[in-house]
Design a protein around this nucleic acid. Structure first.
Length: 594
RNA sequence: GGCCCAAUAGCUCAAUUGGAUAGAGCAACAGCCUUCUAAGCUGUAGGUUUCUGGUUCGAUCCCAGAUUGGGUCACCA
């Protein structure tokens, strides 16, 4: 409709004022609520062609448009804004179209669709997932769904950082202090168990530093000299040299972590099509770096460490291989990228990684480009903002890190408590009830995080996140459940909801609902272009807010006029499925009752 | 210090990418359950969009500078 209006405005300018304007100069937007009309055309840019006042110009263009577009029923002009009124029939027709399409708003991929690979999650295997990872996982999953709904082939991928000095720290502490403790023997979740030893390493390390400083070393010297950090470095060397004992311990402890992660991923409802492990990709990266040295792209120092000099590109020098020959984060990212592009015909590569790594990805992109990969410059770093707590940043040292598993478990407890107080699930089995508590708790958490613009730093207030009233996931789920309740009532009464409805007179609220509903496809598109689940969240909220007013003011089942009753049922049903589809893009489920 | 990012109601967030009187939720106060689920709905109050300039018909949005906060500049990831 907007495109049609835009084209007709161009025509109007040509006929009326003999000027050619291009599409970009014609602004058509949804009319603000407080004014009559549906679409508003900005006439201000055309005043220099018409050489008349805004009112006169709007008048002339308005008359032209109503004449040439049958769906327009009239227009009005307020302070030079041309508001076009669209006929009732058009909106009924929009509803019928939305109702007829089970996947309204979604496009599907075909043979020629572009392939988007999305990397997200990418945990280190030395500690459990925390709140920051949750934002990452939820964004990554949601963006994947949004890209799918925009007709792309999507491959969700995870690069597990399963090797490196951090893992060795956990391993070393476990060797020294573990006394053979396992998840089975202790009853602890594997990732939490390994995380505990990572903390223990840090405690030992600090103690040694303090002792060395007391003996007269500087802090920096102490950090280099501490026996335990030397041991950790030796362990990394042994690991890279394939020492059997080291490898065995490494595999054992990683397997504990994977079992723990699998559980957390399942709870969060995220998954992957392809998982890469750094332990398999870092050698490819190392070979690439060495090739770079041979080809003169990188330089090797006397101590054998390898560096990239990016000062000509406005960046700094970056280390690629340590002097002891071991790899760094950048090394493996080069290898991983190369392997991915040979595994898949990737058109777009998206890295869902926090904004503290903006610089890292600038460098990565440049290095791959220098290594001769034409796609190097095309990598897209989807950089999202940090999650902060009311006390400030999360700091593991100060114990302010919010653990992912604890957080979810706590929210399920609250959901259970609230639901039991309301007592609306009587008659459900305990199993069904638990399912709903889980759905609601995760709905609250996911919506709370995803409704915020991903680029922005967000505040996570635990108290607000478990609020189920207002602009929250459970509020939207509740509205969905209400709609399903009405539909059940209609089914019980033997009322059949028609597949489409005839053009009848509808009231303002109903029309407002259809207007919001019909914008869903363009919202999905925008969300894809901007990589923003928040746009979908905001849309669903607007729709639901409007529906609840309608639901409150106007009865559906008690409407005496059968045609109107059926229209309202179809409207409610379509809104219900749009809520469900919209929420599916956020990875949030909806309950039939709650 | 160099570079990057942010700043909107007491708090958490929006604002159709430059449009009309800047909107929601929470918190506060006042109402609405013999009526399709009150996890809901209605109303009141709350703003110099951090500040100063600039660009133009028009700026929360673009530009410059300042202030404040955050990130990053590792043989960490």
């Amino acid at each position: 409709m907007e495109i049609l209006i835009r084209n007709k405005v161009i025509e109007a300018i040509k006929v009326l004022y003999g000027q050619i304007v291009d599409e970009k100069q014609v602004q058509v937007q949804t009319t603000r609520k407080e004014f009559a009309g549906d679409k508003t055309v900005m006439v201000f840019p055309f005043l220099r062609f018409s050489k008349k006042t805004a009112e006169q110009t709007a008048e002339e263009i308005g008359a032209f448009l109503v004449d040439s577009i049958t769906e327009l029923s009239g227009y009005n002009i307020v302070k030079g804004f041309l508001n076009l009124e669209i006929s009732n029939n058009y909106w009924i027709n929009q509803l019928n179209m939305a109702a007829a399409d089970e996947n309204f708003g979604f496009k599907f991929s075909g043979e020629n669709s572009e392939m988007v690979m999305i990397e997200y999650s990418s945990p280190n295997t030395n500690k459990p997932l925390h709140l920051g990872h949750i934002r990452n996982n939820l964004l990554g999953f949601s963006i994947s769904e949004i890209m799918k709904a925009n007709g792309n082939k999507v491959v969700k991928t995870n690069i597990v950082n399963d090797r490196g000095i951090h893992i060795c720290k956990s391993m070393l502490a476990w060797q020294k202090l573990g006394q053979g403790e396992t998840p089975e023997s202790s009853g602890k979740k594997g990732d939490h168990l390994v995380g505990e030893y990572y903390v223990k390493f840090d405690q030992l390390f600090k103690k040694e530093i303090a002792a060395l400083v007391a003996e007269g070393s500087t802090e920096d010297e102490a950090k280099e000299k501490a026996p335990i950090i030397k041991e950790a470095r030796e362990m990394l060397l042994k690991w890279e040299a394939n020492d059997p004992e080291t490898r065995e311990l490494w595999e054992t402890m990683n397997s504990w972590v994977y079992a723990g992660f699998a559980e957390t991923y399942k709870t969060l409802g995220v998954d992957f099509d392809k998982i890469y492990y750094e332990s398999n990709t870092y050698t490819v990266g190392r070979d690439e770096v060495l090739r770079g040295v041979k080809e003169g792209i990188f330089e090797q120092m006397d101590d054998t460490s390898v560096w990239a000099d990016l000062s000509k590109d406005g960046l700094d020098r970056k280390i690629l291989l340590r002097s002891d020959g071991t790899s760094v984060y950048m090394t493996q990212d080069i290898g991983t990228a190369k392997i991915r592009y040979s595994d898949y015909p990737i058109d777009h590569m998206i890295y869902v990684v926090g904004n503290e790594q903006i610089y890292h990805f600038q460098v990565l992109s440049l290095l791959l480009d220098k290594l001769g990969y034409k796609w190097g410059k095309d990598l897209y770093h989807f950089s999202y903002g940090m999650v902060e707590l009311p006390q400030g940043k999360m700091k593991s040292r100060e114990g302010t890190v919010v653990d992912a598993d604890d957080l979810v478990a706590g929210m399920i407890d609250v959901a259970r408590k609230v639901s039991e107080e309301l007592g609306k699930l009587d008659g459900y089995s305990d199993e069904e009830k638990e399912r709903i508590y889980h759905t609601v708790a995760l709905g609250a958490l996911k919506y709370f995080i995803l409704k915020v613009d991903p680029k922005k730093t967000m505040m996570f207030n635990p108290e607000e996140s478990i609020d189920f009233n207002g602009n929250t996931g459970p509020f939207i789920q509740y509205t969905y459940a209400r709609i399903q309740s009405v539909l059940r009532k209609a089914a019980d009464a033997g009322i059949e909801i028609p597949l489409e409805v005839p053009a009848i007179e509808i009231n303002e609220k109903e029309c407002a609902l259809i207007k919001i509903l019909s914008s869903f496809p363009s919202v999905v598109e925008d969300a894809g272009q901007n990589h923003s689940p928040a746009l979908v969240a905001n849309f669903v909220y607007d729709l639901v807010k409007e529906f609840n007013q309608f639901y409150h003011d106007i009865s559906i089942m008690n409407e005496p006029d059968e045609q109107i009753r059926k229209f309202r049922l179809l409207l409610a049903k379509t809104i219900g499925s749009t809520i469900k589809n919209g929420f599916s893009l956020l990875g949030i489920e909806v309950p039939e009752r709650m």
